[in-house]
Design a protein around this nucleic acid. Structure first.
Lengths: 255, 255
DNA sequence: CGACTATTTGACGCCAGTCAACACCGGTGG
DNA sequence: CCACCGGTGTTGACTGGCGTCAAATAGTCG
C-alpha cells in the first residue's frame, strides 16, 4: 500500500470500521437507530494510508475530522532535537482528531503506525449534529473527554510510574480498548507497532523498552512479538501497573 | 478560611471570577449577550474552600460542575506508594470538572492548592445549553478540548523535556493563561503554591525542583519566591522550554 | 543476495532520586 | 517574651534507573 487511495462512494452501513466506532459509543450509552444513521451518514469518504505516513499535520486548517476504521495511529509531537513523544495511541474505531472540529487546527501531528483505513467526516456535518442531535452531540463530546481521560492517565504513568509499570499499563489499557472494539481475543491482540513506538509513547528509549519487555516476558506476565501481544498473567500485569480501568468509563448510562 | 461557606444567592453579573471565565471564552470566539446571560445564569451558587482541601473526589457521582472563580486548584491522582501526580493546574476562570457533566464521575481528584472560591453549575443547566444553545455548547466543549491540549503538552513535557525545561515550560504556560484571565502583570503573576506542588505537576521531586529553580534564578531567567513568579528573561525562558503557545489556541474565530 | 529496519545485548555515564541535616517562618501557647 | 512546632525551603553526599553508545543478530522486502 504505497500511496493514498480515495474512495468517493458513501460508506456501506455495515463497514466493520464504522461498526467498531459505534461499538465504542454503545458501550457508554444507548444510541437510537436514528442517531446511528446520522452517525454513519456523516461520513463523506474513506481513504487508505500507508504505515509511517502523516495523517494530519499540526497547524493546518481543517475542514474534516478523521475516524480511524482499521489499523493503528497516534497523536505525536516532536522536540527540536528530534525527540518524539506519542501523546495517544489510537486503535480502529477511534476518532483521531474529532477535537479538530472546534480547535480548527491541531496542536500535534497524527501519524499512521500501521497501514490504516480512515473515514473523513466534514465539520459541517458535525456542526449540524450539534444543532439537530443534541444527544448524539453529547456522545461525540464524550468521546473527546475519553481521549482526555486516557491522556491524563498517561501523564500519571510517565510522571510517576517506573518504566516497567509504564509499559505494563499501556499494554493493559490497549487490551481493554481493543476488547471494546471487538478486536481482541481472550488473552491476546494484534499490535503491529515497533518497540520504538512503545518507547515514544512511554517517554523511554527503545533500548530500555527492549530490556523491560524481556523482563515482562521472563516474569511470565506477557509477550510482545511479531506485532502481537499475548497476556500470560492478567492479574499480575494489573497489579504491577496499578491498572484501574475506571478512567476508561466503561459503563453504559444516559449522557 | 477554615471551613466551607455556602452562599445560596444567585451570582451578581459582574462577579470578577465569572468575568475571568467569560474572558477565557471571549479570547477564542465571539459570545452574544444572550449567550453570556445564559452562561452567568447557569451558576446555582458559590462556595469558598480552604487550601489543601479536596474539591471533588474521584469516583463520586456528580450532579454539578465546578467553575473556579478565585485561587488555584489542580486535578491529581495518587499511586499506592503515595506518589502524587498533578495532571493539570487550574487558575481562576477555569472549569475544573466540566468533563464531569458527561463522564458522570471523575477519574481523578480535584484539590485546592490555595484558598479558592468556586461556583456550582447544575448538570441540568449544562444539558439545557446543549439542547437550546448549540453555539454556547460548542464553546463549552471547546473549553474541555483546551484542557486536553494542555494535558497533551504536559505529556510531551514530562516524557521528553529535561527537568529544567519542564519547569520553565510550566511557568511560561501559566503566565499566558494568567494573562488571558487578566491576572498577570507585564512581567509577573501570583502563584501561591509550594515547590512540592510544582514537583508533582512536573513528575519530579521537590528537592530537584528546588535546585532547578535556583538555576533558573541564577541564570537570570525567572524567580519563584513567596508565591509569586517574576519573569526576568521571557525570550530566554521560551527558548529553554521550547515553548510554543499554539496549543493554547489563543485565536478568536467562529467555533 | 543485498539493503534496510528492527531487535537484542553489553559497557559505561549521567540526570534526577534518595537520604539527611539544617535554616526559615508564621503560628501557638506557656 | 520566648520555646516550640509543623510546613516549607535549601544544600550536600551518595545512589541508581534509565540513557547513550556501540556492535551483533534477526527479520523483511525487492
Amino acid at each position: 500500500m504505497a500511496r493514498t487511495v480515495i474512495r468517493a462512494d458513501r460508506m456501506p452501513v455495515k463497514d466493520p470500521g464504522v461498526e467498531r466506532a459505534l461499538a465504542k459509543l454503545r458501550a457508554r450509552d444507548v444510541l437510537s437507530p436514528e442517531e446511528e444513521r446520522v452517525f454513519v451518514e456523516s461520513i463523506a469518504e474513506t481513504r487508505e494510508i500507508a504505515a509511517h505516513r502523516q495523517i494530519v499535520r499540526a497547524g493546518t486548517t481543517l475542514t474534516h475530522s478523521i475516524l480511524l476504521l482499521d489499523g493503528f495511529a497516534c497523536r505525536y509531537k516532536d522536540l527540536a532535537d528530534g525527540e518524539r513523544q506519542i501523546q495517544e495511541l489510537h486503535i480502529a474505531g477511534d476518532y483521531v482528531d474529532l477535537h479538530g472540529f472546534l480547535l480548527k487546527t491541531l496542536d500535534h501531528n497524527v501519524g499512521a503506525l500501521s497501514d490504516v483505513r480512515i473515514a473523513l467526516v466534514p465539520h459541517d456535518a458535525l456542526r449540524a449534529i450539534t444543532e439537530q442531535q443534541p444527544h448524539l452531540a453529547r456522545l461525540l463530546w464524550f468521546s473527546t473527554l475519553l481521549d482526555a481521560a486516557i491522556q491524563r492517565e498517561r501523564i500519571l504513568s510517565i510522571g510517576r510510574r517506573n518504566s516497567l509499570a509504564r509499559i505494563a499499563h499501556l499494554i493493559c489499557e490497549t487490551f481493554l480498548r481493543m476488547k471494546v472494539a471487538g478486536l481482541a481475543g481472550p488473552d491476546r491482540y494484534p499490535l503491529p507497532i515497533t518497540q520504538t513506538d512503545i518507547a515514544d509513547a512511554c517517554g523511554l528509549t527503545a533500548v530500555h523498552v527492549n530490556r523491560m519487555l524481556r523482563r515482562l516476558r521472563d516474569d511470565g506476565l506477557m509477550t510482545f512479538r511479531a506485532g502481537e501481544v499475548v497476556i500470560h498473567d492478567w492479574d499480575g500485569l494489573v497489579h504491577l501497573a496499578e491498572f484501574d480501568p475506571t478512567y476508561l468509563h466503561l459503563d453504559r448510562r444516559p449522557r
